[in-house]
Design a protein around this nucleic acid. Sequence first.
DNA 1: CGCCTGAAAAGTGCATGCAATTTCATCTTG
DNA 2: CAAGATGAAATTGCATGCACTTTTCAGGCG
Lengths: 212, 212
Amino acid sequence: MVRAIADMIVTGQMLPGEKLDEVSLAGRFEVSRTPVREALRELGAMGLVDREPNRSAVVTTVTETYLHSMFEAMAELEAICARLSAERMTVDERRTLELEHKASMKLVHTGAEEDYAAHNTEFHTRLYRGAHNDHIFEMVTQTRARLAPFRRAQFRLPGRLAKSYEEHGRIVIAIMRADGTAAAQAAYSHVEMVSDASAVFVATGEPGARST
Amino acid sequence: MVRAIADMIVTGQMLPGEKLDEVSLAGRFEVSRTPVREALRELGAMGLVDREPNRSAVVTTVTETYLHSMFEAMAELEAICARLSAERMTVDERRTLELEHKASMKLVHTGAEEDYAAHNTEFHTRLYRGAHNDHIFEMVTQTRARLAPFRRAQFRLPGRLAKSYEEHGRIVIAIMRADGTAAAQAAYSHVEMVSDASAVFVATGEPGARST
DNA sequence: CGCCTGAAAAGTGCATGCAATTTCATCTTG
DNA sequence: CAAGATGAAATTGCATGCACTTTTCAGGCG
């Protein structure tokens, strides 16, 4: 159930500031309020909802500066993962990463945004796993989840798919060369691009853009 | 109440693997089981306790490899904070950091372990704040909390106080020079030292050492 | 003597109910 | 007409109770 509610937030079905009242959710999931309350607590600890005493839980509205801090943190974390991946990935991991990347080229050509988005998620997850550090994996995964609402529309920008593919390519090459510094550099600027692309939608008031 | 239980875990009053049964805690805090359950959920989301269906919550036992991954993550995070602090701290923040650092010298000479530990916490917190990135601040703070049980005894190692002071000094100097690279380097190796110092106690079976 | 079996005890998961707080609409007043 | 006061409805916080699962332990069996 935590997963279900988290998904609704992360996928943008619930907008920041929206109230999550316990009885409605209890009805929606056909359980009593007790498990709902526990789920909301957990979501609160995850940073997805804000809770104040005697008030309804609300989907967290991130301020513009906090959003910026998350994107910056994301860039740093991805840079670390890319560097460690360049140093630590097994030959199998490297080969798979490269193969999957090259396979995604045809998605770019056909302009399959949905499919490319899925590939993109997997690509980055491979990077996180390749760092061989479970705690970093958890941090980067959680941060990525909280940023999801703001990244969603990025591939709708014209030419973004091709750009993304090209940036991935730079990361892959650096990792294949075991060049940690270059990999970190490439990953950092890749996230910066995503951040810029997302900023467009934030500014135009797309889902999740409302800020305090 | 979450805070109270978290403190018991972080300060080592509760050892990894220890069961947290709801009725006892309810009695201990003189409330019913409901708020206790919610607190345990939250602690679970924070990674301090493990919860499985129909089983008592237990204080998280970190495996040796996961502990290692947390220390490594901590080094990376502190390095980032030090680098960003070197680039972004205001003159006030820099001055305070330096003053507090120099003031701590006499704690080293008198061998006041408790007081130095308190100073140490504040020193690092200043570093985290100096990065001017709220999300990174949250991540590093949470990671630090989870590592607390394993770092506790480090200052009991002979000569550790002086070493720590010296390492802090290197970080301070780099930050005063606005040399981000040197600051990151100094912070990273500082955490590595702490990791090594803590490993001694983990190996000897001090509180929090039990691993799966 | 050790191991399996099963029943009792203990503990968790969830529903429900009540007190306390917040919220919202309406009424009052300057 | 706007701003504040007021009371009822809605909502949260917590206690309690019951069903179900896990654990424990005593007795029987190999």
